[in-house]
Nucleic acid binder design. Sequence first.
DNA 1: GCAATTTTGTTTCCTTGTCAACAAAATAAT
DNA 2: ATTATTTTGTTGACAAGGAAACAAAATTGC
Lengths: 157, 157
Amino acid sequence: MNKEEQVIMGFRDLFNKMTSLNKIKMEDSLQGYKPSEVHCIEYIGRNVDSNVTKLAESFYMTSGAISKLTKKLIKKGFIESYQKPDNKKEIYFRLTEQGKVIDKVHEELHKEFQERDKAVFEQVTEQQFDSMLSFVEKYSSHLDAEIKKLGINIKAE
Amino acid sequence: MNKEEQVIMGFRDLFNKMTSLNKIKMEDSLQGYKPSEVHCIEYIGRNVDSNVTKLAESFYMTSGAISKLTKKLIKKGFIESYQKPDNKKEIYFRLTEQGKVIDKVHEELHKEFQERDKAVFEQVTEQQFDSMLSFVEKYSSHLDAEIKKLGINIKAE
DNA sequence: GCAATTTTGTTTCCTTGTCAACAAAATAAT
DNA sequence: ATTATTTTGTTGACAAGGAAACAAAATTGC
């Protein structure tokens, strides 16, 4: 296995591991709240005028899935929808007071995770951070270009 | 947002992006074969004596899910199960000839992805590779330790 | 201004995965 | 040896997400 593969598979495995561990911790602290729900609440809390489309793009999920998820969150009273006077199509979301509480708890948990992993990051130098970040950025924009190409390809076929 | 978060979220977004792009390409080349199926075939092709338990651990999935997945792959004729003379409980999997074909096509596709992303990796120095790999390794074993702790915690409660 | 196209969101059907209960074999404890 | 525990795998009920068909509003093109 070459280094390219090692890096990719290494990070993939790392994230799978982290996700499954954090999920357990999360379900412990935020009992009854699913990771996807909390993730959605977090996004809406941080981005004004969130809507189904933006959430779907950000989460790499279909709008159908987000539509159902937000509907459930409204029913549970964590978010509420609103519209703008000049647009009768787009539907935006904001957190309710109850939603803000969840967001707060989640934020605390997030800090706890950072604290837990602090030791690992302390060993990383400034240069290493910057080189990883530049790698991610380059790779990400490379993929963006590929996705764009594909979009054109699809239409061409 | 601090650098820790930037790295984590950057990589997470990168992988989501890569996964969704590769999924589209994969469904194009390996029409009718789902990523999870191909992933499973790949693992069985690379690991002798694969069984439900090992697959579940490697994929961070439940054994129930793997049990159903492998059952489906057997039905489709891509893998077959076998047992060892001295153990009537464990069930192992190997690829059928048809499965090996899929594995081959997948491997080609994998190379195509590597070719596609070569430009990004060419800009990465040997030192950067090593520092990323050592980061992954440290983080991963740190999480392993945390998971182990949790196992003890669960039993203690 | 009006028809055609695009955007935005919802709903239905289907697949995939989790959870929990279970069975059977292997291993450990006594 | 035989009983208890653990390991391994399966199944059924259920929940989450994707795909496609759809509706309604917004935008574009003429």
